[in-house]
Simulated assay, not measured.
Amino acid sequence: MSDDKTTHFGYQKVPEKEKADRVRAVFDSVASRYDLMNDLMSMGIHRLWKRRAIELAGVRRGQRVLDLAAGTGDLAEQFSRIVGDSGAVIMSDINQAMLAQGRTRLVDAGIVGNLDYVLINAEKIPFADDSFDCVTIGFGLRNVTHKQFALDEMFRVLRPGGRALVLEFSHPTVKPLAKAYDVYSFSVLPTLGRFVAGDADSYRYLAESIRMHPDQETLRSMMEQAGLERCEYFNLTGGIVAIHRGYKL
Rank of each mutant, 00 (worst) to 15 (best):
L189C: 09
Q12H: 10
D93F: 01
F234H: 15
R33E: 13
N235D: 12
E208Y: 02
M223Q: 06
D199G: 13
F234K: 02
A70Q: 06
T6S: 08
A20C: 00
A178W: 14
K179F: 11
T104D: 14
I82Y: 07
P190F: 06
N114L: 02
G227I: 08
A150Y: 03
I82G: 10
F27W: 07
Q96I: 02
Q78M: 14
G73F: 05
V188A: 13
V30W: 03
S86I: 01
A25C: 02
A25V: 06
G161H: 09
R22C: 01
L75T: 08
A164D: 14
M91Q: 12
T218R: 12
I90Q: 04
P126Q: 14
D85Q: 15
R24S: 13
L236G: 11
Y247P: 00
R245Q: 13
A20M: 04
Q216K: 14
E168H: 11
M98F: 02
F186V: 14
E153H: 02
E224G: 08
E229V: 13
L40A: 01
L189Q: 03
E208I: 08
G110K: 09
R22H: 03
R105G: 13
R24F: 01
M41T: 13
F186P: 15
V135K: 10
Q101Y: 10
M154N: 05
G73C: 15
K50W: 09
G62W: 12
P15S: 05
V83M: 09
Q96V: 12
E16R: 13
P15Q: 08
G238Q: 04
A25L: 11
D3A: 09
R163I: 12
A20L: 02
T72V: 11
P126L: 07
G227M: 06
K124I: 02
T218W: 08
K175H: 10
P214Y: 15
N114E: 05
I243H: 00
N121T: 13
F9H: 04
D133I: 03
V144T: 09
N121H: 12
T6V: 02
F79H: 10
F79K: 08
M98P: 05
R245S: 13
Q96W: 02
V23A: 04
V14G: 04
N235G: 04
